[in-house]
Nucleic acid binder design. Structure first.
Lengths: 107, 107
DNA sequence: CTTTTATATAATAATTTACTTATATAAGTA
DNA sequence: TACTTATATAAGTAAATTATTATATAAAAG
């Protein structure tokens, strides 16, 4: 994949209001899917699909923790993706529960 | 329009390979539509429509010169759009003619 | 004034996107 | 083992996108 195609893929991944909101949530650190469903006000599968796009573009990473899955921003971003993240106002959310938000994990 | 919506619009405008190529051409300065048609290898109306999207998003500016129309990058860009432009490898093109590429203009 | 040239707009069709509901998977719990 | 919970995948659908061809506009040339 040439650099322009990679760029296109990454930009397509962030050119959607809901996915920008997801990134705005993740600015604060790891978030589990259930909390993100709450923020976006769309169905759980919709959130799952959006997260997948961001993951496929290499913008976010996942960590499994029991039944839960936590997502976070990739530590290293292309400069232009980082600039986008920097521009986003953080969005805060309610933690769905103490079990979900604990720091231990499977990987 | 809130800032997230503006951001979404600008990012949608650049999340397409052909429009990224247009920006890559414009890095060198003003270009007339006929030269851009040559670069993209799609129909003239298609190029017109792509340019319109970039213009509507406030990323490029137009200047009329007789029958021709020249497009150039907006002097001021949002930091994230600028970061995208910076990342693009310039694309060179053939000037369609001396009349077209002269510097005088109507506005 | 008619013709040519450069560009824009309109109408349309194929493709992609982003939801939805239903179902699958996989881990935790009674 | 059966039930619940968290997430993912599948199938279907409505809306958006991006090309195409045909046509309009507007300036320049003859």
């Amino acid at each position: 994949m040439d650099s322009l195609t990679i760029m296109e893929k990454q930009l397509k991944a962030v050119s959607d209001a809901n996915r920008l909101k997801l990134l705005a949530c993740l600015k604060q650190g790891e978030v589990c899917v259930c909390d993100l469903v709450d923020v976006l006000q769309v169905s759980q599968p919709a959130v799952s699909q959006q997260l997948r796009k961001l993951k496929d573009a290499g913008i976010i990473l996942e960590r499994k923790k029991g039944t839960w899955k936590h997502y976070r921003l990739h530590e290293e971003q292309s400069p232009y993706i980082q600039a986008i993240i920097d521009e986003l106002e953080p969005i805060s959310y309610k933690h769905c529960g103490p079990t979900c938000s604990s720091q231990e994990g499977d990987d």
